[in-house]
């Protein structure tokens, strides 16, 4: 898919997060200002404790900043109520987790379908989209299997299908290749890169994986809760 116009999908202004660790304030993020545009394929890197996790939690609306503002697709997250935020995540953000985190009692098809069920998508459309999405990620014939009957790579493909099926603007991926062997990881990364190019969805990775860093077209390094480097390739 050809991208005609880039828009700011994520804007953070002075985002600060202070945790209370047994009475001791810990600054996880220190006034992060960042803009991510639609269609970016961005990796956020940094050592453990640098604030990657906190940053992803905050830009996805899973956590609230102590100070500062987050705008997603032009909407201020802190101004949304609980249910509004849930709906916003459902419609705008796809999550890919390190440990796949599929619902183990649901089949592959049901896992992918779940978000569309929440959104009230009609049954026939849900089915068509699930079939198409599973075909895209190369899992055409496993829709009736449970996650435990799949390999790690296959489970992560299901997770990608689940994240993308509702066509969100942003995909947040937390260490998506960490539990996979390098060959499978490379294949998945290629697939996500291709989907990014085809669909124009914004991909943001939190990673330690050099392979992901290499594939990323923008590399943001966090250190002590602040942006250390921001490099466009």
């Amino acid at each position: 898919m050809e991208q005609t116009q880039k828009t700011d999908v994520i804007v953070t202004e002075g985002v600060t997060k202070v945790y209370d660790a047994d009475g001791i304030p810990v600054n996880a993020l220190n006034g992060v200002d960042l803009t991510i545009q639609s269609g970016e394929f961005t990796a956020i890197v940094g050592p453990s404790g640098s604030g990657k996790t906190t940053f992803l939690n905050i830009i996805s609306g899973l956590d609230a900043p102590t100070e500062g503002k987050v705008l997603l697709s032009g909407k201020v997250l802190s101004e949304m109520g609980g249910n509004e935020l849930s709906d916003f995540r459902r419609d705008n953000i796809g999550f890919i987790f390190q440990a796949y985190n599929l619902i183990p009692v649901l089949t592959v098809e049901e896992n992918v379908e779940y978000i569309m069920l929440l959104a009230g998508v009609p049954k026939a459309e849900r089915h068509d989209r699930v079939v198409a999405m599973l075909e895209t990620v190369g899992l055409k014939d496993v829709e009736d299997r449970l996650p435990t009957q799949l390999s790690g790579g296959q489970q992560q493909r299901v997770a990608i299908a689940r994240a993308m099926v509702s066509e969100p603007a942003i995909i947040l991926a937390d260490e998506p290749t960490a539990n996979l062997d390098s060959k499978t990881g490379a294949a998945l990364l290629d697939m996500m890169s291709q989907l990014n190019a085809e669909t124009g969805m914004t991909f943001i990775f939190s990673t330690h994986d050099p392979m992901v860093m290499e594939s990323a077209r923008r590399l943001i390094t966090l250190c002590d809760g602040q942006i250390d480097t921001d490099e466009m390739k």
Partner: peptide, 16 residues
């Protein structure tokens, strides 16, 4: 707990 966290993260409302 983690599963519930995932369900909540992907957009399940409190009532859901």
């Amino acid at each position: 707990m983690f599963e519930f966290g995932v369900l909540r993260a992907v957009g399940t409302r409190s009532f859901g």
